[in-house]
Design a protein around this nucleic acid. Structure first.
Length: 228
DNA sequence: GATTGATCATGT
DNA sequence: ACATGATCAATC
C-alpha cells in the first residue's frame, strides 16, 4: 500500500476502512513496511497507529481529530470472538484544574466523541497480533440517549474533581464514562486542586469509556441475524 | 470473566 | 511534561 493521502470526505474514509475489513494486522504491517511485534506488551498502541497510517490520518500528536479535515476521531476497538469489546477505550486526559469551569459542550469528552470512526479488530490475547483480523468500521455519533448518559457522567465526575475530590474517585463511578489513572507510573504526578482550592500533586487521570458502553453502541449498529 | 489500577512506546 | 496510541496484570 502506497502512502495514503488524507481522505477528503467521510464517504471516502469509510470506503477505505471497509477495504481493510477482513485483512490481517501482519499483512497490513508489511505493506506499510513495519515489523509486527510478537505481542503488544511493549507496543500497546501498535494496532491503532497502523490503522491510522493505513487510512491517512493527518493529525499526528496535535490536539486535533485524527482526520482534521473531517473532524473525525479514529478508535480501534479490540473485540473477542463474539464481537464484544475486550477493553475499555481511552478518551482523553483530564485537565484537573480546569474541569470545574467547563460546560459539557466545551468538554474534551464531547469534543472527542462527537464523531468517531470505530474500527473493530480481533483482540484476543491468544491470537498473535499479526494474525488478528480487522473487522467492520462504524462511523458513529452519540445518539441523543447516549449523549445524555455521557453528559450525566461527565457532570458527576467533573463536579467531583472540581470540588477537590479527585483522589476519592475510583474506576467504579460512572455508568458509561469512568475515571482511571493515565500515567507512565504510579509515581507520576500533575497539578490538581484540593478541597480548599489549593494546588497539589495529584495522580494524572483520564476518562475512559466502559466496555459495556462500546458493546452497546456496536450492538445498536451491527444487527445480528438469527441465522448467524 | 469482568473490572480496576498500573503501565509501555513515541513524539513534541 | 504531557499529549498521542492503548493493553497489561492483579484483583474482584
Amino acid at each position: 500500500m502506497a502512502q495514503p493521502l488524507r481522505p477528503q470526505s467521510e464517504a471516502e474514509l469509510v470506503a477505505r476502512a471497509r477495504a481493510l475489513s477482513g485483512r490481517r494486522v501482519g499483512e497490513l504491517a508489511s505493506e506499510l513496511g513495519q515489523p509486527c511485534p510478537p505481542d503488544l506488551r511493549r507496543a500497546k498502541g501498535f494496532v491503532g497507529g497502523l490503522v491510522e497510517r493505513a487510512l491517512g490520518a493527518d493529525a499526528g500528536p496535535r490536539a486535533l481529530p485524527d482526520f482534521s479535515l473531517l473532524g473525525v476521531e479514529l478508535k480501534t476497538l479490540p473485540v473477542d470472538a463474539r464481537g464484544r469489546p475486550v477493553e475499555s477505550t481511552f478518551v482523553c486526559t483530564i485537565p484537573l484544574t480546569e474541569v470545574a469551569n467547563l460546560e459539557w459542550e466545551a468538554s474534551p469528552v464531547w469534543r472527542k466523541l462527537r464523531r468517531v470512526l470505530w474500527v473493530v479488530v480481533e483482540g484476543q490475547r491468544s491470537l498473535p497480533p499479526a494474525q488478528r483480523r480487522i473487522g467492520e468500521p462504524l462511523l458513529w455519533s452519540p445518539s441523543p440517549a447516549q449523549e445524555r448518559a455521557l453528559r450525566f457522567d461527565w457532570e458527576e465526575l467533573a463536579g467531583l474533581i472540581g470540588r477537590g475530590d479527585v483522589e476519592r474517585i475510583t474506576g467504579h463511578l460512572g455508568n458509561c464514562l469512568q475515571v482511571r489513572p493515565k500515567a507512565a507510573t504510579s509515581r507520576s504526578r500533575r497539578r490538581g486542586t484540593d478541597r480548599d482550592g489549593a494546588f497539589f500533586d495529584a495522580m494524572p487521570k483520564g476518562f475512559y469509556l466502559r466496555a459495556t458502553f462500546t458493546a452497546t453502541l456496536l450492538a445498536e449498529h451491527f444487527v445480528v441475524s438469527a441465522a448467524g
